[in-house]
């Protein structure tokens, strides 16, 4: 079997069997590409996943592109990338069409309301997890709090906040560099 087909198959499988993507796909990919087909070694795979988390964009797709390109160049990148996004795209299209045909009457309404309530819970869980890993001191907690308040009261919109964070981070790094040069 060609490498492209193997890549496509591995990511297609991982994409259709795991929820919320990103790192959840990794164990399946490892099983398929490292253990069964031995196309890439584990360390490289894990390094690419860490890298994929650093860059903007869809983490699972960035990871697929890295691994695909490493194993089989440009065509490998396309095969793995398509495999990673195709299941989500097709299933979600289908789900959205069905969702629009849901009757907005009877027991469906309270059922949907309860489901919507849980979506708030899981976003809180995601935020807690992220806070545990990234808020190590008072200063960062205060910055996060400011971002929270600015967003909740609609003072600054999210894209601008992220842009602002990038600029301030750049200035901080620049300042740090200069201090090192002075000493």
């Amino acid at each position: 079997m060609s490498k492209n087909w193997l890549l496509f198959k591995a990511y297609l499988l991982a994409g259709s069997l795991t929820f919320s993507g990103g790192m959840a796909m990794l164990p399946l990919i490892e099983q398929e590409l490292c253990v069964k087909q031995q196309l890439i070694d584990r360390d490289t795979l894990y390094e690419y996943s860490t890298l994929a988390q650093t860059f903007p964009g869809v983490i699972a797709l960035t990871n697929a592109c890295f691994v695909g390109r490493k194993i089989n160049g440009r065509s490998g990148m396309i095969a793995a990338g398509l495999g990673a996004i195709l299941p989500a795209y097709l299933l979600m299209s289908l789900a959205t069409v069905l969702y629009r045909f849901l009757p907005e009457t009877g027991p469906i309404l309270p059922a949907l309301a309860a489901i919507r309530a849980t979506s708030a819970s899981f976003l809180f869980v995601a935020a807690f997890d992220l806070a545990r890993h990234n808020l190590r001191d008072r200063q960062s907690a205060a910055i996060a709090l400011l971002a929270f308040i600015a967003t909740v009261f609609g003072l600054i919109s999210a894209p601008y906040l992220i842009g602002l964070a990038l600029v301030i981070g750049l200035l901080q790094a620049w300042h740090g560099q200069r201090q090192r040069e002075v000493h």
């Binding site: 995601a126 935020a127 910055i143 996060a144 400011l146 967003t151 906040l161 964070a165 981070g169 790094a173």
Partner: peptide, 27 residues
């Protein structure tokens, strides 16, 4: 690149606030 590292650190901190804000709006 030392710049990239510092920029990402700050973006992640802001993200914590952003995601809490989304969760709060949904609440």
């Amino acid at each position: 690149d030392p710049y990239l590292d510092q920029m990402l650190k700050l973006v992640k901190i802001v993200l914590v606030g952003l995601i809490f804000a989304v969760a709060f709006s949904l609440l």
